[in-house]
Write a protein that binds this DNA or RNA. Structure first.
Length: 921
RNA sequence: GCGGAUGUGGCGUAAUUUGGUAGCCGCGCUAGACUUAGGAUCUAGUGCCGAAAGGCGUGGGGGUUCGAGUCCCUUCAUCCGCACCA
């Protein structure tokens, strides 16, 4: 019987499905293990060979854990809301729900062929009303909660109202938008609408006017993590800054916890570092600067309070509300022009133009609180409206940006720390002795900072402050294909739906474009009203809404009374292993942690952090092939001769190239213009292509579809080969040529079970010492390698073992059974087939991972490498227990040693027992 | 500029625990066997130089050590992330 992978794989995939082999339930007799993949957005293009890499790795780990006796939760679902489906709908008029359904079907087909151990009964889709009901529900919970900065915890809005009734907002320490102080009497005198406005400043989900990343081409607002290099991450369209009324999530309230929570996670350092940078904690002080001739003050944030004596001017961000107030009549035209100019610049222009120094003097002066000198107030776009207070005290001597600005506009530069040469450049380092700074003179920077902080507070000029770069998350998207907000408007007041009224589903429409007046697509829908009267919120939620708590829903996916039951949450708790791409390092992974912390605060989940261990799989790159057309001809020159000509490099489809040799006939048929192409071949008469490692993409003709690989070699070969390619975390190119190696291995493995006539042929005989050694070496290696996610070396170990066993002509059941079990996480189909052919009635998934016995691994003799001055020259086999002195004798008496030592004296002999020998001459 | 990672045969890579035989495994290549045929299968060889003896060899330079891919210093290259963050 031959290894008929097609038949075997189909059969077992059907069996597993029919017998619900991978369905899991809460089982208190077993320890739980939760393995999660980042669920995919089902795009129209389907899967290419790079997508399943992480899924295969997590599947191996899941199967391994199950063999070890864990109750493994390993679910899959779809991040089904999203922009591409909507853009496709705009073009074709097809409802996104329909195209999404089609794409999901295709994805599931492709995934099912790879033989994953998913419990599909737990599938979730973010676009399913039964799912997004709980997304909306959590949003409402956030709406009804505020963040108590003292307790670092979300609390119900009712506690806040009680406090306002009693004390106003003077005593409470809450994370909120800027709100003036008021006493209880003022609060109690407000009407409902006024109270609403105040409460909005405190809610964790709130609506406010803010400067947003507006992408005109997409017709929507984007979050910071959706903007890369000043253009939209999806599509690469320009993004500008715009003031808009938007729903937001007060994620900044959790900045501290999001930062400290990282410490105990088993994530890579680089990923944690990315999150730390994104949160961007910095310690310093907020200091007020008086302004000459008015009562206004400018509040600045600085990490270098020690340098205040060197502050010779101030800069306001162009967006700052103070700009208007502080601009003199004679400067107003120039300032207005500048502010308009700055506002209309795209993020990209601003970033690209960073060296180009611009700014305008407002005409006003601030008073340096320590030198009492008047210093000019400028506005310039190197100061960002969104960070700190949107205003800075500029210390040109010790900040390179301020320095460049001062030089450009000829502003005074006063050094206050010794060390640099301010004629040439600013001295930014935080070391040195203070000068020109009155009571700070002579102190080290560190001490000066401390002293100044104290001084600022005693003089009542400001206070210590920890500042975060993290912004509140903008939660509105002006799109159709997302979760509707459970909000309607009554006299312009946002009113939340009641929990019982959820889910609020999307109304139908046949036009998915924004309206002519710039309203979101939902604005087109007539009669979409609450209670027949009130308008709903027209924007929808962003992509990260649905993906923030999906891992929780898998624990209890069909529960229609709760996001997750207490019982399910208590059992499954958190994700033990999360595998996904690094592209979600700051987006999804930070929103999801925030979302989870909020649910923790309100008692829905028992774990403060959702993802205990996280592994980022590397990208599978494409391996492109090229042909070289000689300029102005239809003649193609082979790779090694190309430099004799002027040529154009042209991508060719990798599917018509084998080991870099071009299939001429297929190439000629590929495109009409190549039909009568001519070629300059190499000596071997073949056309050799060039190659390059690039991103896998259609336009580069280097996309490889897993379906084709499975068709040709089977899923087990695909799984093994993806792992064999290299370390999981590393990016590496896909090269189909190498796949033959693992395919040969599986065939060789198969033959271990059969005789020459193709009949199953297994021996009941007990294994001998050598056979035991071979299989136990494998058992040990596989366990250790899987634990440390070194799947590439595991595959190598399988190959070595199969080679050894076939040399030993070992067909003993005792040995091969163990091999089957340890191979089954990687190649479940062939393992299941041979498991059953060897007489088992139950699935190999229910087997037990064998334990290795170290007795079989120890040897009686050791092959000692004998080195001369550190260079190994020969090896010699010596009994393991032999004493050093005897080893020395044997080595020195060896002929090869004598040859080497001729005429030389031995200075020293180093013998490490059981390891090696080094002779120094 | 800051932060992180990575540099080993023609290619993908291995060398875990503790510094102890560098190149496991696979692709490719070479030769052979079988075959009507080979883009099938099997066997052997394959880091580089050299006929061999031997020498050299983990991006470069330096150091520690009996011994360094592994530790230290320095330098270069590539990739990723962040980037007027006060």
């Amino acid at each position: 019987m031959n290894y008929n992978f097609g038949e075997i794989e189909k059969k077992h995939q059907e069996n597993w499905k029919r017998n619900q082999i991978y369905k899991v339930e809460i089982d208190n007799t077993k320890p739980k293990f939760y393995v999660l993949d980042m669920f995919p957005y089902p795009s129209g293009a389907g899967l290419h060979v790079g997508h399943p890499l992480g899924y295969i790795a997590s599947d191996i780990y899941s199967r391994y854990k199950r063999l070890q006796g864990y109750n493994v939760l390993h679910p899959m679902g779809f991040d089904a809301f999203g922009l591409p489906a909507e853009q496709y709908a705009v073009q074709t008029g097809q409802h996104p729900a329909i195209t999404t359904e089609i794409n999901i079907k295709r994805y599931k087909e492709q995934l099912s062929k790879i033989g994953f151990s998913y419990d599909w009964s737990r599938e979730v889709r973010t676009s399913d009303p039964n799912y997004f009901k709980w997304t909306q529900w959590t949003f409402l919970k956030m709406f009804h909660h505020w963040f108590n900065t003292d307790t670092q915890k979300a609390e119900p809005i009712e506690t806040l109202i009680k406090e306002f009734e009693k004390n106003g907002n003077t005593k409470i320490n809450a994370t909120c938008s800027i709100t003036p102080h008021f006493e209880a009497a003022v609060w109690n005198g407000m009407d409902e609408a006024e109270k609403d406005v105040i409460l909005m400043n405190y809610r964790l989900a709130y609506r406010a006017k803010t400067t947003v990343n507006w992408c005109p081409a997409l017709g929507t607002v984007l979050a910071n993590d959706e903007v890369k290099d000043g253009v939209s991450e999806r599509g690469g369209y320009p993004v500008i800054q715009k003031d808009m009324m938007q729903w937001q999530l007060r994620i900044t309230a959790y900045a501290k916890r999001l930062l400290t929570g990282l410490d105990n996670l088993e994530w890579t350092d680089s990923l944690k570092e990315m999150q730390r940078n994104w949160i961007g904690r910095s310690e310093g002080a907020e200091v007020y600067f008086d302004i000459k001739d008015t009562d206004e003050k400018i509040l600045v944030f600085t990490t270098r309070p020690d340098t205040i004596f060197g502050a010779t001017f101030m800069v306001l961000a162009p967006e700052s509300k103070l700009v208007d107030k502080l601009t003199n009549i004679e400067n107003s035209e120039e300032v207005d022009q500048y502010v308009t100019y700055a506002k209309n610049r795209t993020e990209r222009e601003r970033q690209a133009d960073a060296q180009n120094i611009t700014g305008v003097f407002t005409g006003s002066y601030a008073i340096n609180p320590f030198t009492k000198k008047e210093i000019p107030i400028w506005t310039a776009d190197y100061v960002l409206g969104g960070y700190g207070t949107g205003a800075i005290m500029a210390v040109p001597a010790h900040d390179s940006r301020d320095y460049a600005f001062a030089k450009h506009f000829n502003i005074e530069i006063i050094p206050v720390v010794e060390g640099g040469d301010i004629e040439k450049e600013s001295y930014d380092a935080k070391t040195g002795k203070m000068i020109n700074s009155d009571f700070l003179n002579g102190l080290d920077v560190k001490d000066a900072v401390k002293k100044m902080l104290k001084e600022v507070e005693t003089r009542n000029l400001g206070k210590r402050k920890v500042n975060y770069r993290l912004r509140d998350a903008i939660f509105s998207r002006q799109r159709y294909w997302g979760e509707p907000f459970p909000i309607y408007y009554k006299d312009d007041r946002a009113v939340p739906l009641k929990e019982e009224e959820l889910p609020l589903t999307l109304p139908d429409t046949d036009d998915y474009k924004p309206t002519e007046t710039g309203k979101p697509p939902l604005g087109r829908v007539e009669n979409w009203l609450y209670d027949g009267k009130y308008k709903y919120e027209l924007s929808t939620m962003p992509g990260f809404a649905g993906s923030s708590a999906y891992y929780l829903r898998y624990m209890d996916p069909h529960n229609n009374k709760a996001l997750v039951s207490k019982e399910a949450d208590a059992y499954w708790q958190d994700v033990d292993l999360y595998i996904g791409g690094t592209e979600h390092a700051v987006g999804h992974l930070i929103y999801s942690r925030f979302w989870n912390k909020f649910l923790y605060d309100i008692g829905i989940v028992i774990k403060d952090e959702p993802y205990k261990k996280l592994v980022n799989q590397g990208m599978i790159q494409g391996r492109s092939n090229f042909v070289y057309r000689i300029k102005n001809t239809n003649k193609f020159v082979s790779f090694n001769f190309r430099n004799n000509y002027e040529f154009t490099e042209i991508h060719v489809d990798v599917n018509m190239v084998n080991n870099d040799i071009l299939d001429i006939e297929t190439f000629k048929k590929w495109r009409p213009e190549f039909a009568d192409a001519e070629f300059i071949f190499e000596e071997d008469g073949k056309y050799h292509c060039g190659y390059a490692v690039e991103k896998m993409s259609k336009s580069k003709y280097n996309v490889v579809n897993p379906d084709n690989i499975i068709e040709q070699y089977g899923a087990d070969t695909l799984r093994l080969y993806e792992m064999f390619l290299g370390p999981l975390e590393q990016s590496k190119p896909w090269d189909t040529n190498g796949i033959e190696g693992v395919f040969r291995f599986l065939n060789k493995f198969w033959r271990l079970f059969f005789d020459n006539e193709g009949n199953i042929n297994l021996s009941e005989e007990k294994a001998n010492k050598e056979e035991q050694k071979v299989i136990h070496t494998l058992i040990k290696k596989v366990g250790e390698d899987i634990e440390r996610f070194s799947f590439n070396t595991t595959v190598a170990a399988y190959m070595v073992c199969a080679g050894d066993l076939s040399k030993l002509k070992c067909n003993k059941l005792e040995v091969l059974e163990n091999f089957l079990i340890v191979l089954s996480p990687f190649a479940p189909h062939i393992a299941e087939e041979l498991w059953q052919l060897s007489g088992h009635k139950t699935s190999i998934a229910d087997a037990e991972f064998p334990k290795y016995n170290s007795v079989f691994l120890t040897e009686d003799t050791v092959k000692y490498p004998v080195a001369f001055n550190g260079k190994t020259r020969f090896t010699i086999e010596i009994e393991k227990d032999m004493q050093k002195s005897e080893i020395e004798k044997i080595i020195l008496n060896d002929l090869r040693t004598k040859q080497r030592l001729e005429g030389k004296t031995v200075k020293k002999i180093i013998i490490v027992q059981g390891r090696m020998v080094n002779i120094v001459i």
